[in-house]
Nucleic acid binder design. Sequence first.
DNA 1: GTTCCGCATGAATCGATAG
DNA 2: ACTATCGATTCATGCGGAA
Lengths: 292, 292
Amino acid sequence: MKVFAELYHGDCKEVLKKLPDNSVDLIFTSPPYADQRINTYGGIHPNKYVDWFIPIGQELLRVLKPTGTFVLNIKERVVNGERSTYVIELILEMRKLGWLWTEEYIWHKKNSYPGKWPNRFRDSWERLIQFNKERKFNMYQDEVMVPMGDWKKSRLKKLSETDKQRDESKVGSGFGKNISNWMDREMAYPTNVLHLATECNNKNHSATFPEALPEWFIKLFTKKGDVILDPFMGSGTTIFVANRMQRNSVGIDIVQDYYTMVKDRVQTVDYYLFEQKTNYEQTEPNGRISIR
Amino acid sequence: MKVFAELYHGDCKEVLKKLPDNSVDLIFTSPPYADQRINTYGGIHPNKYVDWFIPIGQELLRVLKPTGTFVLNIKERVVNGERSTYVIELILEMRKLGWLWTEEYIWHKKNSYPGKWPNRFRDSWERLIQFNKERKFNMYQDEVMVPMGDWKKSRLKKLSETDKQRDESKVGSGFGKNISNWMDREMAYPTNVLHLATECNNKNHSATFPEALPEWFIKLFTKKGDVILDPFMGSGTTIFVANRMQRNSVGIDIVQDYYTMVKDRVQTVDYYLFEQKTNYEQTEPNGRISIR
DNA sequence: GTTCCGCATGAATCGATAG
DNA sequence: ACTATCGATTCATGCGGAA
């Protein structure tokens, strides 16, 4: 299957106008938080955040397919001892545009930023706000099933130890089959709380969210060959995960360095696959970068 | 220490007017959810929820001490495929009354109700919205510390060998002091995400939250002898936990059965303590029920 | 080939100090 | 009075090198 990654450099409010109506299956993005990351992005004042975002929300509504989903990763910061209200105001304004506020998932950040203050504890969660265009949308729930409980993990560990023992005594005949059967029966649907650690290791470019986050929603809301849009792609986590999962992707960023970096790395991925599989597709004439 | 439980039967909007200004240290409550429990509370339509709550929020602001805290346990329900907006609208309206929206804790319900729907997974979290009257309020953070993660074990091992010597060699240096403080630390401050299972063993009275929930906030925001108010006490979980923790409590409920049941059970607790400790205080002449 | 351990770092916030 | 800058505080994760 041929997969493209379509990258743009510019203000997504303008760039989005180039995209056709009803062309995207999933929008997954984490916009710059108010007055955060001021050195890379301009920094939007909390009081003006909603006004800044709404025109973008309007365009996103246009490009999303009726069966598509928009997942917004965001968290309000503390201003003068209070939680800012721009996120919840944004939800109300988005509904006025016609968006449906379907659900709010919680990302529990297991390794939240340390610190101690007299009036609050560490902030260890972020919002994943799900918007939809219509009440009927594509959702592939079976793709994100998980092993049932923590007590299963210990049993799995025991099994793997047993696995080794049997491996020594008997040459495993049909044992793997048993495990897979057992695992299949122990799967359950997840909830709307996701437990993931932030990636804070010393990589070249730190992402704002771990790959597992877009991966989960991509599995849940798209199938192979669908189109995923990230209008604030940043270091490109969404784009790369989409590629790996054989989804097409459209990425936009206003920062030249991010755009260049993601473009280069996407090409690297392309080249890597070329070497591995000796199955290279020509770059599309329209500037789309082919990945297979 | 003598502890009272002051119970009222009636609409809290009216009953609250009897309470004096600045007399409560913590308000912890879980109001009837919109259109939920219609048979008991009559059910408030989601569209009218904010209008219904605001006069109560006004009175709560009056009775709370300037150093006190109001914790509101609530979660918006799904109406016509969308999350209702009355909770986030309520936050905005409460701020207009003068409340400060200090923080939003997440209660992750570890054993939430099983089930799935075509459009959504199980809802396994609720909001615990913290409002305050002033930016400075009482918070006893040390009372809710939790054991550190497993990573601490290896770190302890390391520090016991190398950093002890360094600490002795660099006596008085700020750096060494920091290290030693950290080394002795066995407990860490928690985050704003609480992991509690819903109680399913309580057959008599279906409480809306487990005892551990009010217990955590009572430890965090009050000391012994403080006054805790629950204007929607329901089956009285907040009241009983406050009693057990030697905090005074004020409970209000509009449902006669709830009022009677809590009053009877509080007296039972009273009698129980009388037998155990042979230290009984007369019931107060003003109708307050004494507990020690 | 594992296991263990050192270490950098992450969408942070408050209070004091300076301009 | 109001804004800007800076130091202090703090916990968990995963990479990479070493045993």
